[in-house]
Computed example of a mutant assay.
Amino acid sequence: MKKHVLLLLLSFAMVSSSIAQANDSISLKILKYKHKVEVRVNGELFTAYSFEPSLEKTILFPVHAPDGTIVTRGYPIAPRAKERVDHPHHVGLWFNFGDVNGFDFWNNSYAVGDERKGAYGRIIHRSIEKAETSGKDGLLKVKMDWMAPDNEQAEKLLEESTTFIFRAKDGAWMVDRITQLTATRDSIVFTDNKEGMLAIRVDRAFEHPSDNPVIYTDKSGKSTGVAVLDNKGITGWYQNSEGNEGLDAWGKNARWVLLAGTKDSSDCTL
């Protein structure tokens, strides 16, 4: 069988109102018993590569800005007060796709019942190949498998080899992701839809203001419906490389997307 390979390079960066340090240093710490690899800058948590068995994919979670501001939503892993509880598959910073050989990898989560799991694929962490640092850079190389659902004998569709490069420079914290997907069967079809491939679910403060009714969490994680949305402190502003701004930037093809917002007096740009 001839193997087909897809290679992707994706970048993510954050800037906040913190003061850059000339001697920024990145460290990686493998915590196998917690199923994660922590990434720290000058001892402060930047993010963690998480491969919890309960997740349907690997993620970077949480993600912090250089001044310590948490930019990712906590729900459903670590819910915080006044968070929206829609789209439980929106967790941290992640990479997958909506339709691979007819299986939905994007929308899979704990919320999908057993009776519907047959339509969903999952990405399973297999190994940490390398974890090393050099001053302001950290490199993490991992391997994963893209699996069809169990009712298909958990067939492996793709082998993934991903290298994360974490950087701290001039007040910005950055992640480069280099992903190689290798087909394990003759026919692998990525059917285009709106789901994919790289996404981050941000904290409520960085969302675009909205008037739609939502369901929030309280500080204990309990869900409560709200008919009228309170936009106080909701400051997210989106723009892309094609000149689209605000809601007009949603669902548009673009070379890059920028999100700016303020949380607890901290100005952040993603």
Rank of each mutant, 00 (worst) to 15 (best):
L93W: 08
P79V: 14
E115G: 03
A111I: 01
V100W: 02
R122C: 04
Y120V: 10
H87F: 04
W94N: 09
R84T: 15
L93Q: 14
A78C: 12
Y75D: 04
W94C: 04
A81V: 07
N108M: 07
G92H: 09
G92V: 02
P88K: 04
F105L: 03
P76V: 15
D86I: 04
G102N: 13
H89R: 06
K82T: 14
A81W: 03
A81L: 11
F95L: 14
A119G: 13
V85I: 12
P79A: 15
I77M: 05
V112S: 01
Y75Q: 07
G98P: 08
F95G: 00
K117E: 09
H87P: 03
E83Y: 02
K82M: 14
D104K: 01
F95W: 13
L93I: 09
V112D: 00
A111G: 05
G98I: 03
D114S: 11
H90F: 11
L93Y: 10
D104V: 01
S109C: 07
N108C: 02
K117F: 02
G102H: 10
F95Y: 14
R80K: 15
R84S: 11
A78W: 10
R122Q: 08
D114K: 05
W106V: 02
D99E: 14
V91K: 06
A78K: 15
V85G: 04
G121Y: 01
G118P: 12
A78E: 15
G113Y: 02
W106M: 04
N108D: 06
V85H: 01
I77K: 09
V112F: 00
N108P: 03
N96G: 08
N107L: 05
S109G: 08
A119P: 00
D99Q: 12
F103C: 02
A111N: 08
H89N: 13
I123M: 09
W94Y: 11
R80N: 10
A119Y: 10
I77E: 03
R116K: 15
R84H: 10
P79Y: 13
R116L: 07
P79H: 13
W94A: 09
N108V: 01
D86E: 15
E83C: 05
A111W: 00
G113S: 13
F103S: 01
K82E: 12
A78R: 14
W94F: 13
A81E: 14
R84N: 13
E115P: 02
H87A: 14
H87T: 06
F97M: 04
Y75N: 07
V112C: 02
D99C: 12
Y120P: 05
G98S: 06
K82R: 12
E115M: 04
V91C: 05
H87Q: 14
N107R: 14
Y110S: 12
R116H: 10
Y110K: 12
D114F: 04
F95Q: 11
G92T: 10
G98D: 05
N108R: 08
E115I: 01
Y75H: 13
V85K: 03
